[in-house]
Computed example of a mutant assay.
Amino acid sequence: MATILKRATTDLVAIAWIKGLVGDIVATTVPRLPKTGIPAWAETGFVTVHTSSGGANMYVPMRMPVVLVDCWAASPNSVKPPWNKATALAETIVAGCLDHQNNPRLLTLPAGYPHARVLSAYTVQEPRRPVIPGGGEASADLGSWARIVLALQLHWISVGGA
């Protein structure tokens, strides 16, 4: 039986790269809300990522995806969405793109995956509040949530592994 190797993926790379900027508040989904009380990430906000488009270089093993980034913030004790907190997360990511000492950067992925190196990262969409067609600006389903979205172009390679 063939052994299937774990390979780096764009979602894993994007999560690791953004964690280097904002800390351990990044995943592909927002953590479940507790049945009672305040979510653990309410103080810091939370970032979710997912691959949108892009491709791989035809001649070298380099990926060039566009990653959609959602920056979430919640105000459990208020009905006013904390737009500034969500915007601050997004702007931290934008600043990380402009930090030339931060790019390129070697990343450690979860156990069993090869390392990856982000060669460059830059925004291809300005941070903004999402718009629902016909509905104007919207935060999230809950009135006390704020969501700021942006898109990143990453150029990355897998380092090590087969």
Rank of each mutant, 00 (worst) to 15 (best):
I4F: 07
I4N: 13
K6G: 00
R7G: 08
R7V: 05
A8C: 04
L12H: 00
V13K: 02
I15Y: 00
A16K: 07
W17G: 03
W17F: 08
W17N: 01
I18S: 00
I18A: 03
K19T: 13
G23Q: 03
D24V: 02
T28G: 01
T29C: 05
V30S: 09
V30R: 14
R32V: 11
P34A: 03
P34I: 08
G37H: 10
G37F: 15
P39W: 14
A40I: 15
W41M: 11
E43D: 03
E43V: 12
T44Y: 15
F46G: 07
V49L: 00
H50D: 04
H50P: 03
G54P: 10
G54Y: 12
G55C: 14
A56G: 14
N57H: 12
N57S: 11
N57T: 12
P61H: 14
M62T: 11
M62D: 10
P65L: 06
V67F: 03
L68G: 13
L68H: 11
C71V: 10
C71I: 13
A73Q: 04
A73K: 04
P76A: 08
N77K: 14
N77T: 11
N77W: 09
K80C: 09
N84S: 14
A86N: 11
A86H: 14
T87P: 02
T87Y: 03
A88K: 10
L89P: 09
L89C: 14
T92P: 11
V94H: 09
A95F: 15
C97N: 07
C97K: 10
C97S: 05
L98I: 06
L98Y: 11
N102M: 05
N103W: 12
N103E: 14
P104A: 11
L106V: 05
T108K: 10
T108D: 15
L109A: 02
P110G: 02
P110S: 11
P114C: 03
H115R: 15
H115E: 15
H115M: 07
H115L: 09
H115S: 13
A116Y: 02
A116R: 08
R117W: 10
V118W: 04
L119T: 12
L119H: 15
L119V: 15
V124L: 07
Q125P: 08
E126L: 04
E126D: 07
P127A: 05
P127C: 15
R129L: 00
R129Q: 03
R129M: 10
P130W: 12
V131P: 06
V131A: 05
G134R: 10
E137M: 06
S139D: 09
A140F: 05
D141H: 03
L142Q: 06
G143W: 05
G143I: 09
W145F: 05
A146W: 11
R147K: 05
I148C: 04
V149L: 07
V149Y: 02
L152E: 04
Q153W: 10
Q153V: 02
L154Y: 07
H155R: 09
W156M: 01
W156H: 05
I157W: 01
I157G: 00
I157D: 00
V159Q: 06
G160N: 08
G160T: 04
G161H: 06
A162D: 02
